[in-house]
Structures are given as C-alpha cells and as structure tokens.
C-alpha cells in the first residue's frame, strides 16, 4: 500500500511536469484527432455541424469508391516516384560535395538551396516551366532540339510524373544537408584501411559508406515518405487534382472534399484512413527496414 501510494504520487508529479506539453498536445493533436474520428461517422452540413448519423457507412462508401481507390493509388505512385529519386539524387550530390576542394562550400550551398524555397514559390516557378503550348520553358527547350511538345500538366499520363519531378527538386535541399552531415561524421580511419586493402571507390561506397550511412538513410526514408504522403501545395497550385483526377492524391482529395465540397464527414473518414496508412507504413519501416540499419 505504501508503495502504491508512492507511485501514485510520482505519477501525479509526472503529470504535473508534463502538463504544459500535454495541454498543447491535447489542444492541437489529440482533440482534433478525436474530433476527426467523430465527424467521420456523420454527414455534416456545409458549416461542419454533424447532422446525419452515418456510422461506418462513410468508410464503406469510400473503400468501394473508384475515385478514392484512384486517389490512394496516385498517392502511392507519387511516393514511389519521389522518395527513391530524391534520396538517390541527394546522395549523389552529397558524395560529390563531400570532397575537400577550394570553393566546395559554394556547391554545398547551391545543392542545399531548395530548402529555402517555399512550396508555393516553387510551384509557381514550375508552373511557368510546365506551361502548355509554346509558352512554357520546357516546351521551348524541347522545340530547340526538335522534340514534340509535351502537355506536362494537362494530360493524365504526364501530370503525376511532372509533379513528382518538381517534388524531387523541392526535396533535394533537405535530403542533401542531412546526407552530407551523415557522410561527414563517418570515421576516416575505416576508409583509410579499406584503401590500404585495395578497395576501389565503388567497393568503398557499396560496403562501407552506405552501411555506415544507413541510420541517416533510414531517417530520410521515413521523413520523405511521410512528407510525400502529405504533399499538398504543389497539387493545389499546379493541377488541383486534375486532369481527370490523375493527380488527386489523398491529401488533396481530403482538402477538396472538406473545404471545397464542404463534406466534412467523408473528408474526415479519408483523413482517418490516411492516418492508418501512414501509421502502418511507418511501423513497417521501423520493423523491417530498420533491421538492416547498421548502428555503430
């Protein structure tokens, strides 16, 4: 009994110390989450008041809707297009920039510069690059080398790849900084002994750099995946989910349903499903991929 009283007392102290952060979490994270789940069980009027009880019907309708499955598929494709691409290009740039040369700082700054560009300005710049007809920069360049023009954002085949290209460019800065930081913290003596043993550049990269860098690579993999699932700005500015829903990824579809169509119930249901997907993927990443990560 004495022991129990003591632990209760400790718990209350713990809660007391945690209360500022708990309060913030409750107000900004837990309450909205609970409310989202609550709303997903209703049909709301356009002000967002729940008026018709639907139970799990919103989920049933969603999962059987072709448009929602298309959204899920577009999101997965977008993740698949952007995450490996961003990491590979950023890794290549980080390897290039990880040499001791006069003026290398200039290149490091250039390679990391996209971290300072907001998604809104980036999307606006790329809107001009992708402009259809003869007005866009990319189509102009294609014309110079005699290739046919591409309807970057206006055909179903090219819209999502075009958005992915822009998103890879956007993500390079952040990935580059993290990976370069990781590369620079690798112990030089291991490489030295590998070189004495006669390992070439590729062997060093394959068997020393990448394994030693794996905690950092794992970190960017998790962060990039979550970011890609939650990408919104470029979709809102460049395609608005079109054409024919080809780029209607799930986050954009949630926004559209909630704030454009004022259907907060079904939008909440989509949000809950997205949450479950990201949770599952993150658990898989921690359970499966992390085992391959080499911690020193």
């Amino acid at each position: 009994m004495v022991h129990r009283g003591k632990s209760l007392k400790q718990l209350s102290y713990a809660l007391l110390y945690l209360s500022p952060s708990l309060l913030i979490f409750i107000v900004f994270i837990f309450f909205p989450m609970a409310k989202t789940f609550y709303l997903s069980l209703y049909l709301t009027n356009p002000h967002g008041d729940p008026v018709v009880w639907k139970g799990i019907q919103s989920y049933v309708v969603l999962l059987s809707s072709e448009m929602f499955r298309k959204s899920l598929w577009s999101s997965l494709l977008f993740v698949f297009f952007t995450v490996p691409g961003t990491i590979l290009v950023a890794l290549a740039l980080a390897l290039l920039a990880n040499v001791r040369l006069r003026g290398i700082a200039i290149f490091r700054m250039l390679y990391s510069s996209t971290i300072g560009v907001s998604v809104a300005s980036a999307a606006t710049i790329w809107m001009f690059l992708y402009a259809p007809g003869n007005n866009g920069m990319f189509n102009y360049l294609l014309g110079l080398i005699g290739l046919p023009k591409v309807g970057w954002l206006v055909t179903t085949q090219t819209a999502l790849p075009a958005l992915s290209l822009m998103s890879i460019w956007m993500g390079l800065g952040f990935n580059f900084i993290i990976l370069l930081g990781g590369l620079q913290s690798l112990p030089e003596d291991i490489f030295e002994s590998a070189r004495i043993d006669g390992a070439g550049w590729w062997r060093q990269l394959r068997h020393i750099t990448v394994p030693l860098l794996s905690p950092t690579l794992f970190f960017v993999l998790v962060v990039d995946t979550i970011n890609a699932f939650q990408a919104f700005g470029q979709f809102n500015i460049l395609t608005q989910g079109g054409p024919d829903n080809a780029s209607n990824v799930i986050v954009y579809s949630i926004y559209r349903e909630a704030f454009f169509n004022s259907r907060f119930g079904p939008a909440s249901a989509q949000a809950v499903i997205l949450f479950l997907i990201i949770l599952t993927l993150t658990l898989i990443q921690f359970g499966v991929v992390e085992r391959k990560v080499h911690y020193q």
Binding site: V154, G242, P243
Partner: peptide, 19 residues
Amino acid sequence: ATNLGRKTADTQNAFGAQQ
C-alpha cells in the same frame, strides 16, 4: 484546337502570343 488545361491564364497567354 488544342488542350491548354484548366487555367484560363494559359489560354489567355496563348491568345496574346498569337498561338
């Protein structure tokens, strides 16, 4: 005719550029 997408500004630009 050609498909210039949803943005009216893109079509307006094409008209202004005599495309």
